[in-house]
Amino acid sequence: MSLITVERKILEKNDEIANLNREKFRFKEMFTMNLVSSPGSGKTSLIEQSINVLKHKLKIGVIEGDVQTNLDAQRIDALGVPVVQIVTNGSCHLDAMLVRDAFQKLIDLDLNLLFIENVGNLVCPAAYDLGEEMKVVIISTTEGDDKPLKYPAIFHNSKALVINKIDLLPHVNCNVDAISKNAYSINSELKIFETSCTTQEGISEWCEYLLSMVK
């Protein structure tokens, strides 16, 4: 019998590539956001709204992650913005290797802002650094105000929280103040936005924030 003492992070390979990604993104002077939410919270809609407001001010690119289909990439492509679709074929999260390979197709475009839309999932994406500058977690008012308490890691690891679909508040049993309170109990430094991609409420505040991050 021999015992070998080791001290190695299980995700060391991912983290190493994520750091290389981050160096590359910074060298390109591009701000990168990793958007994480449950399926159907409005990640793609939020990206579309951001593009509509900012496309004349910033050069934006998008990496889309989905288990199947390139439907999201089609939506972004329709806005005339460069997009790469990653199809994970069942995997529940993006990793740094997938993002590195996808970014090769955007590398020569001199982008200012890159959105990475993760696979819809509040659990696994929290563990994987992609090389982004910040994670943004999005929840919609239809999901209930207890989500931060149920999925604390992603709320802890994000710098901003977008509470989306606030136009539905009259119709759903959701208390936005409770979402904020629960989220702050996990991460007291979260920047919180309330948006509706249908009525555009809150989108200009969100886009001001994006601009301030890029510059």
Binding site: L3, I4, V6, R8
Partner: peptide, 11 residues
């Protein structure tokens, strides 16, 4: 934490 700390081999 998420790390490997020890490996024991049958040798």
């Amino acid at each position: 934490e998420l790390k490997v700390t020890e490996i024991e081999l049958n040798d």
